[in-house]
């Protein structure tokens, strides 16, 4: 049904009046532009590694409840992600590296404490 409508719209519309299609599409274009303008007003520009970065660093809130294996996995992912961030320009590189380091440091810290607890010795200075 949908295909039929689109086909008739394209065939009929374009054949009869080429401008008609654009006139019909205009409201949709305006709506799209409006939606874009309404997006987060403080969103940072997109970076290619954002998904992976967010997946990793979203785990800082529950780092304490993660297993040793999970923490080691997250630390490895931090190390793997680092070169991708280093390739970007400033200030993205500086900002995301700082944020990634904070996440990694926390995972290392929790991991060390878990290992120390397993050994029965407190960590820290």
């Amino acid at each position: 049904m949908k295909i039929m409508i689109i086909r008739s719209f394209l065939d009929g519309g374009m054949k009869r009046d080429p401008c008609r299609m654009f006139r019909k599409l205009l409201p949709a274009v305006i709506l799209l532009l409006f939606a874009c303008a309404l997006g987060p007003l403080h969103a940072w520009p997109e970076v290619p590694f954002k998904q992976e970065f967010e997946d990793i660093c979203s785990r800082t809130s529950d780092a304490e409840s993660l297993s040793v294996q999970e923490l080691e996995g997250l630390i490895a992912r931090c190390d793997k992600l680092r070169p991708a961030i280093e390739k970007t320009g400033e200030p993205e590189r500086k900002i995301y590296l700082k944020r990634l380091n904070m996440c990694k440091d926390l995972f290392v810290y929790v991991l060390d404490s878990k290992k120390a607890a397993a050994r029965g010795t407190p960590n820290g200075p």
Binding site: G39, P40, L41, H42, A43, W44, E54, C57, S58, R59, T60, S61, D62
Partner: peptide, 8 residues
């Protein structure tokens, strides 16, 4: 929005 990470 667009900056912070959705965390548990």
């Amino acid at each position: 929005d667009g900056v912070s990470i959705k965390r548990p």
